[in-house]
Design a protein around this nucleic acid. Structure first.
Lengths: 340, 340
DNA sequence: TATCAACACGAAACCGTTTTCGTTACTTAA
DNA sequence: TTAAGTAACGAAAACGGTTTCGTGTTGATA
């Protein structure tokens, strides 16, 4: 990179002190109009831009927000990023995005790197492996250092910080109830392993809805997908049971289920109803299109970043963690059209 | 944020100088074993982490790479980010991600902010609006300042820098040829406005393939989608023509085309073949699944970041812009299965 | 005993900027 | 004539590190 022009260069070149240059560029009244014009002209000519590192060091703030996601090739996380970026940008912040790739180790490392002063605060969705081994010390460290932290979607109670989540139980309930309303009673649930808590919560909603309809939950109708294995055969297994509906906790699972149903000669939604989660492009463009629970990722990102910036800029306030619950909507599409 | 522990605090607390502390923490031979142990123990106890801003200022490098994308809710860009992040991470860099949202103004601003010393280099895919109004001065400014820059996917010749692109002409040719091989001759092209050069290039490939088969291109079969309008009606118009195949330059257009085909009672691939671009989840999960040109976004991101880091770390070399062309593959699926 | 190297540490400069607090020189009012 | 005020600028500290170059104290050697 070319040697950048600094205040020092300008000062030396114009035979004044750096303080004068600094003040002149800020249009301070302390400096004579004449001198100001001379300095500003010179700065313009050589395209002077203040070094942001120096400013960050001096001001003890970076105007950067760190974002750590488990993965990105997932419509939901993409929309969350959009929301975060837009909200951050509006308040003059930039975002630094990292991925844990669902790995505990990488999450710990990334957290360490970002908490070295390079960001003013962090927005994180916890890696699946971390949720599994339940070791949250790296997060607790952050909290102890009082680095502003907002968790979203995948959160845990052990970490005392602000949180933004969707009403997973309610959403699971809503989805299941919708199937029940369509007179489906043999509803399969395709979910994540139980340690991924959003999956567990949606399952609670599913069970609650069934109980209220006096249907006892049948464990054989529930599959917990192991993402390290091939997904399709795992879902296929549940089709060996007698089912008339599928509730999947994300759209990939839902799309797979639909594909399998078709392969088995089942017609959607006549023979079997399918409902997914995360209102992404797959659900929208598959045929038949898939009814889903819309998670409002954009809103979630926006809320998370607003909360974080609030926390960053009002440090003085006493700390009382907030939890924002975003309600989710049922987005009706073809895959659950009543047969009547 | 809590007051962080610094080298100064340690020095004062232990009654030594900051230089001693700094050296001790780096295990310098200049410091006695005794003192080193004392200092290291103290640092560990209070969880000392060197302030990265201070280091960045002193070393004149940030180990951060800026990434500016037109948008993210697009499978292709998501995979590119993954590639960039992985490559960057491997070499100890972090990435700062921003979005231009296809807007010229936001692109200019973002570029300005990031080139203030907060990043060591930039990876950018140009905003559609910028391509349209052909004003590249903000990029030329970067090049003049010798800030390492790599453009990918959407690139232009006017900017003298490293580039990573897919072989768009070849890909367009390949796709069209595939349709021709399946005895389709009335091939519609659904593309972007011509200023988005990747669209223009793919169109060249399309036209080349047709010419080689002695088929004259019919302008009525080509639609340039205006993304500010509703997409579906625009695509519907081409179905008023007599067509037996559709080549779409991205998967959203392809999915829309398939949906329309079905609504018109056309069977895919019996009555009409459809081929898309960008091997995303929509293509994979729609039914029938859609044949696409795989763009290898991950590879692209990786190559881009490798190129950039190479440039950052070997400044001395004389500058000769490189252009890496990534070959694309045809991914055969159901939407173009030969009817025979 | 004088000389010299090795050892262990500190002072100070530096990265680029801001800001407080002088310090001049000049003007104005008492 | 003198005290006070003001305009215009500079010196220096500060942010948190690293690094070069002393410097004082040992111990060994000639």
């Amino acid at each position: 990179m070319k040697q950048k022009i600094t205040i020092k260069t300008i000062a030396k070149e114009l035979g004044v002190s750096t303080s004068t240059v600094s003040k002149a560029l800020k249009d301070s009244h302390e400096i004579s109009t004449e001198t100001k014009q001379k300095i500003q002209a010179y700065a313009d000519l050589y395209n002077y831009k203040p070094n942001s590192l120096a400013l960050q060091l001096r001001n003890q703030k970076t105007k950067v927000i760190g974002v750590i996601l488990p993965k990105i090739v997932h419509h939901f996380f993409s929309t969350v990023i959009m929301g975060i970026e837009e909200g951050a940008n509006k308040k003059g912040y930039n975002i630094m995005v990292c991925f844990s790739n669902e790995s505990y180790k990488k999450e710990v490392e990334t957290l360490k790197v970002l908490s070295n002063g390079s960001v003013d605060g962090l927005i994180v969705s916890i890696a699946s492996q971390t949720l599994e081994n339940k070791d949250f010390n790296h997060f607790k460290g952050l909290v102890a250092e009082e680095i502003p932290l907002v968790l979203f979607d995948r959160v845990v109670d052990e970490i005392l910080c602000d949180k933004v989540v969707v009403d997973d139980v309610g959403a699971g309930y809503k989805a299941t109830q919708h199937l029940l309303d369509n007179h489906r009673t043999k509803i399969a649930l395709i979910t994540t392993p139980n340690h991924v808590n959003v999956g567990a919560l949606r399952r609670q909603g599913y069970e609650k809805a069934l109980i209220e309809s006096y249907i006892k939950t049948n464990k054989k109708l529930i599959v917990e997908i192991d993402e390290n294995e091939d997904i399709k055969p795992q879902i296929e297994k549940v089709f060996e049971q007698d089912i008339d509906a599928v509730f999947a906790v994300n759209e990939i699972y839902a799309a797979n289920a639909m594909r399998i149903a078709k392969e088995k000669g089942l017609e959607v939604p006549k023979d079997i109803s399918i409902i997914g989660f995360t209102d992404g492009l797959i659900s929208e463009y598959s045929s038949p299109s898939i009814t889903t629970i819309a998670q409002h990722g954009f809103t979630m990102g926006k809320q998370a970043v607003d909360l974080l910036i609030e926390r960053i800029e009002n440090e003085s306030e006493l700390f009382k963690p907030k939890k924002i619950v975003i309600s989710s909507d049922l987005k009706l599409r073809e895959s659950t059209k009543p047969s009547s």
